[in-house]
């Protein structure tokens, strides 16, 4: 699995298939990125579970916080890790003890741990690193185009009206296999000494 550049089909299949997402490191502070990613994904119809031991007893947008993944009372399709790269491995270890296993472990923008990814993939879990599910959802649905972002998708069908709580189609035609030349180059430059 190339974790420098993901094919759109890989990301699209994940966002189209998962239903429940546990967000590790979710913050109740409404100016933190984890808060608004949580809110956005909840509004798009995902069953969101906030995981943060510091906020047990409180809830986030009506969803009660749990202290750890093992405390969740139902199977989880995806774990979205909002922690720094140095805190990824313990969360992955915890996730791999779940039964049934999650289908996807997703590490947020800026977070990457290749050893943890390898371990998860060896257990049959799909991994995404250094991406934001909100941005990817917004990109594949072209909702993010309001911000002048290159969604790298085309469509000749009438656009859906983006309203609160609406699930948008992600099945648009992708441009260039999922990554821009620029992001390929960025990945390449990073691997150079």
């Amino acid at each position: 699995m190339n974790h420098d550049a993901y094919d759109d089909n890989y990301i699209r299949a994940i966002l189209n298939s998962v239903k429940s997402i546990a967000m590790v490191g979710a913050s109740p502070v409404n100016v933190r990125p984890s808060y608004f990613a949580f809110k956005y994904l909840a509004q798009r119809g995902y069953d969101m579970i906030p995981v943060n031991p510091g906020h047990v007893g409180k809830s986030l947008l009506g969803k009660p916080f749990v202290a750890q993944l093992a405390d969740i009372d139902r199977p989880i399709d995806m774990i979205d890790i909002f922690r720094n790269s140095s805190h990824i491995m313990p969360v992955v270890d915890e996730a791999l003890k779940l039964s049934p296993l999650p289908k996807v472990i997703w590490m947020q923008l800026g977070a990457r741990d290749d050893a943890a990814a390898e371990k998860a993939e060896a257990a049959g879990v799909k991994v995404v690193m250094n991406r934001c599910p909100k941005i990817e959802y917004g990109r594949l649905s072209s909702e993010i185009s309001w911000m002048g972002v290159n969604s790298r998708t085309l469509s000749s069908k009438r656009a859906p009206i983006p309203t609160q709580g609406m699930r948008l189609s992600l099945n648009r035609m992708s441009v260039g296999g999922g990554e821009t030349a620029a992001s390929d180059r960025a990945a390449k430059n990073k691997s150079e000494p």
Partner: peptide
Amino acid sequence: VHAGAQPDPT
């Protein structure tokens, strides 16, 4: 011709 444009939602 196409990038960024889509028939108007309304």
